[in-house]
C-alpha cells in the first residue's frame, strides 16, 4: 500500500532544529561550572566543619525533634482537618460557621505569631480552668505548667495545619461525584456511613497528593519553633554557631538534613500517590517521570479521566 511512490513522506521528514536549546544548555553549563568552582574553592564554606558537625550528637537530637514535631503536628492537622472539612460541608449552620471561622482565623494569621502567642499564653491566661462561665470552676491549673515550649510548638503548628488540611480535605470531598452520595443514601446508608464508606475513600486520591506537599512544608515549618527556644534541627545548629561563629557551615549542616528528609518524603509521596491512583485507568507514571513532570494537581487530571471512563 505504501509502496506506490507518492513523493515525500512524514517518516523521512527533516526534524526541526532547536538552536535555542543548545545555547541555553551552554549558558547553564558555564553557570554550573562557576557554582561548583565557588563551592570547592571558597574556603569560607569550611567543608571540614560541615562534615564534623553533620552527625554530631546535638544535631541528631535536633533532627529527632524536628521529625517528631512534623509527625505530631501533621497527625493533629489531619484529624482536625477532617473534622473541619466535614463541618464546613455540614448542613448544621452553627457547625458550618464555627468551622469556617476557625479556618479563616488560622489561615489568616502568620504561623510564627501563632507559635509565639501559644508560647506566651500565660500572659493572657495565667490560669487554665474548666468550669461554668461566670460560675464555679471544677479544675484549675497554672498555664505555664501546662503550656511548655514543646506543647506551644505542637499547638501552634498542629492547629495551624488543621486549617490548611481542612481546605485540602474539603476540596477532595467535593471532587467526589454527588451521585455516589445518592447511591449510598438510596441503599439505606446514613450520612456518616456514606462519608466513611463511600466519599472519603474516593476523596483520598484528591487529598493525598497535596497532603504530601503539606508534610514536606511542615518539615521546614518546624524550623519556626527555634524562636521559642525549642532545640529542633535549626536551633541546635544555631546553638553551635553562636558559640563557634561558624554560621555558614552549620546552616549548611541544617540544610543538608532538611534536604535529606524532604527528598525521602518526595520518594514516599510517589509510591503513596501510585497506590491511591490504582482504581483509575490513568497509566502509571514511572518514578523518573514523576520527578521530571509533576502536574500541579494530579488529582484533577485523574478525576476528569475517570469521568470519561463512565
Amino acid at each position: 500500500m505504501t509502496q506506490t511512490n507518492r513523493g515525500p513522506d512524514i517518516e523521512t521528514a527533516v526534524r526541526r532544529k532547536h538552536p535555542g536549546r543548545w545555547l541555553a544548555a551552554a549558558i547553564v553549563a558555564v553557570l554550573l561550572a562557576q557554582f561548583v568552582q565557588f563551592l570547592v574553592t571558597n574556603p569560607r564554606f569550611e567543608w571540614g566543619v560541615v562534615a564534623s558537625y553533620l552527625r554530631s550528637e546535638s544535631i541528631i537530637r535536633g533532627l529527632g525533634l524536628t521529625l517528631a514535631l512534623t509527625v505530631i503536628a501533621m497527625v493533629i492537622g489531619i484529624a482536625l482537618g477532617i473534622l473541619l472539612a466535614v463541618g464546613r460541608l455540614s448542613e448544621n449552620p452553627l457547625v458550618k460557621s464555627v468551622s469556617a471561622t476557625y479556618v479563616w482565623f488560622f489561615r489568616g494569621t502568620p504561623t510564627l505569631i501563632q507559635l509565639i502567642f501559644f508560647y506566651n499564653l500565660a500572659a493572657l491566661l495565667p490560669e487554665l480552668s474548666l468550669g461554668i462561665p461566670f460560675g464555679p470552676a471544677f479544675f484549675q491549673v497554672d498555664t505555664n505548667a501546662v503550656i511548655t515550649p514543646l506543647l506551644a510548638a505542637i499547638l501552634g503548628l498542629g492547629l495551624n495545619e488543621g486549617a490548611y488540611m481542612a481546605e485540602i480535605i474539603r476540596g477532595g470531598l467535593l471532587s467526589v461525584d454527588p451521585g455516589q452520595r445518592e447511591a449510598g443514601q438510596s441503599l439505606g446508608m446514613t450520612g456518616l456511613r456514606v462519608m466513611v464508606r463511600v466519599i472519603l475513600p474516593q476523596a483520598m486520591r484528591f487529598i493525598v497528593p497535596p497532603t504530601g506537599n503539606q508534610v514536606i512544608s511542615m518539615v521546614k515549618a518546624t524550623a519556626l519553633v527555634s524562636v521559642i527556644a525549642l532545640s529542633d534541627l535549626l536551633y541546635s545548629a544555631q546553638a553551635i554557631y553562636n558559640r563557634t561563629f561558624q554560621t555558614i557551615p552549620l546552616l549548611i549542616v541544617a540544610c543538608i538534613w532538611y534536604l535529606a528528609i524532604t527528598s525521602l518524603l518526595y520518594i514516599g509521596q510517589y509510591f503513596v500517590e501510585r497506590h491511591y491512583g490504582r482504581s483509575t485507568r490513568r497509566a502509571r507514571t514511572s518514578f523518573w517521570e514523576f520527578l521530571r513532570i509533576r502536574p500541579r494537581t494530579p488529582g484533577i487530571a485523574a478525576a476528569s479521566s475517570s469521568k470519561d471512563d463512565l
Partner: peptide, 18 residues
C-alpha cells in the same frame, strides 16, 4: 436510612461505587 433501604433506585449515571 432504614426506610430508604426498602426502596431500590437505579440512576442514569449508574453511580456504582468506583
Amino acid at each position: 436510612a432504614r426506610r430508604r433501604s426498602r426502596i431500590g433506585m437505579v440512576f442514569q449515571q449508574f453511580n456504582l461505587f468506583s
